[in-house]
Amino acid sequence: MKSDRRHFLKAAGVATIGVAAGATAAEANLLDSAKELLLGPKGAAPYPEAKKGARWAMVVDTRKLTAESMEKMIHACNHAHNIPLHPLRKKGDKYNKDEIKWIWEEEFENAFPGQMNEHLPPKVTQNEVLVLCNQCENPACVRVCPTKATFQREDGIVIMDFHRCIGCRFCMAACPYGSRSFNFKDPRIASLEINPEFPTRMKGVVEKCNFCAEQLDKGLQPHCVEACKNGELVFGDMNDPESEIRKVLRNNYTIRRKPEVGTQPQVYYIV
């Protein structure tokens, strides 16, 4: 009797595994046929305008930045990406705890801690500089994400899959530049002039600058770059020796934020 029961349990276990394996295989088959069915025999493809084999980077020419131009660029980004303007969480808060920002202004000494030499030219230190996600070549945020919700595309862009983010905020701890924001509350409750072409986020996910991947994929420039008039930002393909950004990098000495942490930022600054 006892041995019968044991045999039965063993057989049941094997059968369960078999059925599970079969179901998984069937599902994989289904998925393959579904892919062909749903994405067509040719499958999905990028926009024809998208540049292939690019490695995107940006140069910020801080000499040309003015308060006015920076505001324009920031506004272009905020509007295009439906970035909410949350009020202070509590009256009297010293800073905005719910704040979301992709590109914003910082004092020189905050953007470049440790590079604040004495007697720097006033034009370097008086102006604020623009900071944004550095789109690191070796991103710490991607390394720590437990779900691959933040990942690196082939063109180097570090981007968020908002559908997948569980909101653990490990990436915010890992980012050496403070470039990431968390949706502490529903962004839709903030005053927001919605751009219908781009989604908002939902509460509980992390977000950050995506180098305007949605623009690049259509062969367009990022919104902040489109908004600047005097070449404050130069954007381009590092893999193309003839690109403007490569020329600018050849002709000017540039610095990057916290080079010592080994993340290889792809946002360069001319000071």
């Binding site: 990028p46 991947a213 994929d217």
Partner: peptide
């Protein structure tokens, strides 16, 4: 989102 393939026939 993940493969940048935006179009399908």
């Amino acid at each position: 989102v993940r493969d940048s393939n935006h179009t399908a026939p």
